Simulated scan of single mutants.
Amino acid sequence: MRSISIMLGGITLLLPQLSFAHLVTTRLGEFYSGLAHPITSLEHLLPWLALGLLAGIQQRNTSRSVLLWFPFTVATGAILGGWLPGPTWIQTLNLFFLCNLGLLVLLALRLKQAVFVLLAVVFGFTQGFANGVNTLQGSDLLLYVCGVTSAAYILMALVTAVAFCTYRRSAWGPIALRAVGSWMLAIGMMYGGFLLFAPGYALTGSN
């Protein structure tokens, strides 16, 4: 019986089938593209991290509000970004957000809930618009937007939770978060210098 099993296993190995590294035979390719797009580009990832850190510094109810408003406005912006051509100033606006979010984390500033929600809404919309893809339509665009929105929720939930606990449950937490905020601010200022003196330069390193 064992020899028969070995023989059948050998025959199976001699009859290979096509295999794919990605789910190209399904309709989920655009979803994974949307999921990876904002978290593999530093110009999107860094401001998202900065917002999550800032949310972790806020009061509990204010921190939770970002989990609703940020993904919702990212989805709205991504849908409009898929239908409309992206303005040239959107990158500059997102850089402005990176610098200011980094500064707010550095100062460990607690905002009123209405002010923080407004900040998350405007920032989420501009980030979603910047992640929009004009070449996708119909269900492809829908899957892509779902991916981007999932990335926004997952990343914001994880970063906010870690920042919230770190800031309150360890003596070094506030210092560490403020140090990271200073790095975010410094990166935004350096990136702004590259944009001013080398307009073709991007944070991803492409020309």
Rank of each mutant, 00 (worst) to 15 (best):
N134I: 15
N134Q: 13
T135Q: 04
T135L: 12
L136Y: 11
Q137M: 04
Q137L: 04
G138Y: 03
G138S: 02
S139V: 08
D140H: 10
L142M: 05
L142A: 09
L142Y: 01
L143D: 01
L143G: 00
V145Y: 02
C146S: 10
C146G: 12
G147R: 10
V148G: 08
A151M: 03
A151D: 05
A152M: 05
A152Q: 05
Y153N: 06
Y153Q: 09
Y153I: 14
L155T: 10
L155M: 13
L158I: 15
L158V: 15
V159W: 09
V159Y: 07
A161N: 06
V162N: 07
V162W: 13
A163D: 07
A163M: 10
A163I: 09
A163K: 09
F164V: 08
C165I: 14
C165A: 15
C165R: 15
T166I: 14
Y167I: 10
Y167Q: 11
R168G: 11
R168Y: 14
R168H: 15
R168F: 13
R169W: 14
R169H: 15
S170A: 15
S170Q: 10
A171M: 11
A171V: 13
W172G: 11
W172M: 12
G173H: 11
G173Q: 06
P174Q: 04
I175P: 04
A176I: 09
A179T: 11
G181H: 04
G181R: 04
W183M: 08
M184G: 06
M184P: 02
M184N: 04
M184K: 02
L185M: 14
L185S: 08
A186L: 14
A186T: 11
A186V: 12
A186K: 04
I187M: 02
G188V: 08
M189W: 12
M190K: 07
M190E: 05
M190D: 04
Y191G: 09
Y191S: 12
G192H: 02
G192R: 06
G193H: 09
G193F: 13
F194D: 03
F194Q: 03
L196A: 02
L196T: 07
F197C: 00
F197G: 00
